[in-house]
Write a protein that binds this DNA or RNA. Structure first.
Length: 483
RNA sequence: GGCCCGUUGGUCAAGCGGUCAAGACGCGGCCCUCUCACGGCUGAAACAAGGGUUCGAUUCCCUUACGGGUCACCA
């Protein structure tokens, strides 16, 4: 049988990391076994609907490569794929249940339900519906219906026994039926609740594997009872542990935690983010950590899913991001970095490719560019203490001497080119009988004005060009002479 | 509070009755080196606690502790 999974987000805003990971796993479960990945929009709650949220969903799926086989935008044989457009089909199923005595009309007012909860001793809301409307006579129901009294449809739970279901990651779970509330299936506005629509849609769409967060674990018995009532076979359940911000809290936008789009805006690569979140709650049978979506598809097995929540660690993501940057084909990498360089070095006509090359092994995120290249644009103010470096065996005196010595050599260099600069400096070092660092550290310092820089003295000189190099050396000499 | 679930280094995690308890990130040290970074080597660091079962428990069972989830006309 062909595996069919579905990603069923509700359009209530941005795409958060936990959601995206769920989509990833749904995609992988299907694709690793040649199945289909379906997108269904669950918009039964009109009050929470957010304009534009559907586009975010489409864009994210497109960007991440989680290509769906069926969905609102591309159609399919099981449409419509938007729950609100399916509205007409739920009532008949509710009625079928009522006829089977597995559900009933409830005309209770909100006020009555609220008072039910309050009257429950502790004042805590854990009262079940008291089944006030369960045994209304057919005449009463008919009369209520005809006089237009608002109603909901409730599922009739068995009072005794247990319901057991199997979850692929959590194993077999049993719950006493007495724990189960007569949940609402059809709301008074005629819309199905998520719990009801989900079961109907999943069945109608031939979803074989229901993959979702573990917060649904406790309502799954109700779902199973629904499948049973209809005489349908329940899907395979795959519940996923949460992605946490810390040991106590789930990742959530409310707390200002990073969403997928935030991470991208912060200079993280789409592929790196996907790779990282794949590893949050799943691990391959081998020890590999870096893999593309295609490779992931090859490696993925449901048995690699874990059941305990995992904390989102931006530090490890950052490392992984730098791995992706380093491994990237230069041209592709340059396309990503160029806009950042344009922005950081607006007025400069420097060789951006050379700068980018220096940066590739030093970037953790794309947004690090500005902070690393600022000195190319403008030499920062710096103190002469920068010239003192114990390991380089330099002092201010040595630095001054070295700068003065290299100045004429560089001025006279016939061609301004990296190896030529290198050779001339090395020759000078030899001639003066000093250490490499005693020449190059002062030079690098004079050229960058910073304690660290991407690239050494020679690389910086090459990129800055002769004129600017000479200018900065003179500036260094001037500073040192003032001492 | 009832019910359900979880608990291996700081973090991600392997393990599925017998291991010196992998690996990765991060952290420390060393090497490379004109700084930083990269790269290489190396070190510290964990089975929540207590009972069973067993010749033997990180692994199976129970209890406790701690954490999470759920108990909506939200999904």
């Amino acid at each position: 049988m062909e595996i069919r999974t579905r990603f069923a987000p509700s359009p209530t805003g941005y795409m958060h990391i936990g959601n995206l990971r769920t989509a990833l796993y749904e995609y992988l479960i299907a694709k690793s076994q040649g199945g289909k990945f379906i997108l269904r929009i669950e918009d039964t709650d009109q009050e929470r609907f957010v304009e534009g949220a559907v586009d975010i969903i489409y864009n994210t799926l497109k960007l991440t490569g989680l290509k769906h086989d069926e969905g609102p935008d591309i159609g399919g044989n099981y449409g419509p794929y938007v729950q609100s457009e399916r509205q007409g089909m739920y009532m008949q199923y509710a009625k079928e249940l009522i006829e089977k005595d597995q559900a009933y009309y409830c005309f209770c007012t909100k006020e009555r339900l609220d008072s039910l909860k309050e009257s429950n001793c502790e004042g805590v809301a854990f009262a079940h519906y008291d089944r006030h409307c369960m045994n209304l006579s057919p005449e009463e129901i008919k009369a209520n219906l005809e006089s237009g009294i608002p109603y909901v449809v409730r599922q009739k739970m068995p009072r005794e026994g247990q319901t057991t279901f199997d979850d692929v990651v959590y194993g077999s779970i049993s719950v006493d039926n007495s724990e189960l509330d007569d949940q609402i299936l059809i709301k008074s506005d005629g819309m199905p609740t998520y719990n009801f629509a989900n079961v109907i849609d999943d069945h109608l769409m031939d979803i074989t594997h229901v993959v979702r967060g573990s917060e649904y674990l406790s309502s799954t018995p109700k779902y199973n009872l629904l499948y049973e009532a209809f005489g349908w076979t329940a899907p395979v359940y795959v519940h996923l542990p949460a992605v946490m911000k810390d040991a106590q809290h789930k990742l959530s936008k409310r707390n200002g935690d990073a969403s997928f789009e935030d991470l991208i805006a912060k200079g993280y690569l789409v592929d790196a983010v996907m790779n990282y979140i794949a590893l949050l709650g799943w691990s391959p049978s081998d020890n590999t950590e870096i893999f593309s979506l295609e490779e992931l598809q090859q490696k993925f097995t449901i048995s690699g899913l874990s059941k305990s929540p995992s904390i989102f660690d931006i530090v490890k993501l950052t490392w992984m991001n730098s791995e992706y940057i380093k491994a990237m084909d230069f041209d592709k990498y340059f396309d990503l970095v160029q806009p950042k360089l344009d922005e950081a070095l607006r007025n400069k006509s420097l060789d951006f490719k050379k700068i980018a090359a220096l940066l590739q092994k030093r970037l953790e995120t794309l947004n690090d560019v500005a902070g690393l290249v600022d000195f190319f644009d403008q030499l920062p103010e710096y103190g002469t203490d920068l010239y003192v470096h114990k390991k380089m065996k330099t002092t201010e005196e040595i630095a001054l001497d070295s700068l003065k010595a290299c100045l004429p050599v560089l001025e006279a260099l016939p061609v301004w080119e990296e190896t030529a600069i290198h050779d001339s400096m090395m020759a000078l070092v030899e001639e003066k009988g000093i250490k490499n660092g005693q020449m190059l550290w002062p030079l690098r310092t004079a050229l960058s004005g910073k304690p660290t820089s991407p690239g050494g003295a020679i690389e910086l000189a090459d990129i800055l060009g002769r004129e600017e190099t000479i200018r900065r050396i003179n500036k260094g000499i001037e500073l040192l002479e003032k001492q």
